[in-house]
């Protein structure tokens, strides 16, 4: 069992589906942060069997919309002065613009670079987002 110290201020992204932690790390641009960030993979979980966790130390403008698109089941602990001051779930916006990109090679966005990539939430239960232009569903990988 790894021992990673608690945060003074920041976020703990918990209950990430095992294996998705690195994708979320990348999509949130955490590799560009100067502050301490821990990605812990395959943590034992009673609820999920295995899960990933990300801890982000320091002040950071967390993109709740992006998290909702990536995995609406993530739990977000907001930490201040070493304590959890709020537990949140990600947003699931009806429309996301310019956050994720359509990967369909046949989509008009592949040849018209100035087009803003737009995705519409088409199934809230499954968390499915589809490109408004070609209707391809967003896949993390």
């Amino acid at each position: 069992m790894l021992n990673i110290s608690g945060l003074n201020e920041g976020y703990v992204l918990d209950h990430i589906k095992a294996g998705d932690g690195m994708d979320i790390y990348t999509y949130l641009g955490l590799d560009k942060l100067d502050t301490e960030v821990a990605l812990i993979k395959n943590v034992k979980s009673n609820k999920m069997g295995k899960k990933d966790i990300i801890k982000i130390e320091g002040s950071y403008d967390l993109d709740f919309d992006m998290l909702g698109v990536m995995d609406p089941n993530i739990t977000i602990d907001v930490i201040k002065d070493g304590r959890i001051i709020e537990k949140r779930k990600p947003n699931m916006p009806e429309m996301v613009e310019g956050i994720i990109k359509c990967k369909n090679p046949r989509c008009i966005t592949t040849i018209e670079q100035e087009l803003v990539h737009r995705f519409r939430l088409t199934d809230r239960t499954k968390g499915t987002y589809r490109c408004v232009y070609c209707e391809q569903s967003f896949k993390k990988k």
Partner: peptide
């Protein structure tokens, strides 16, 4: 248009009715 969604883009900027006559495999 061979690219999927092109007529949708056209409709977003058009002042006249746009009919999709086929966009890729869409």
């Amino acid at each position: 248009h061979p690219k999927e969604g092109a007529p949708m883009v056209a409709a977003m900027h058009s002042r006249i009715p746009v009919i999709n006559a086929g966009d890729g495999g869409h």
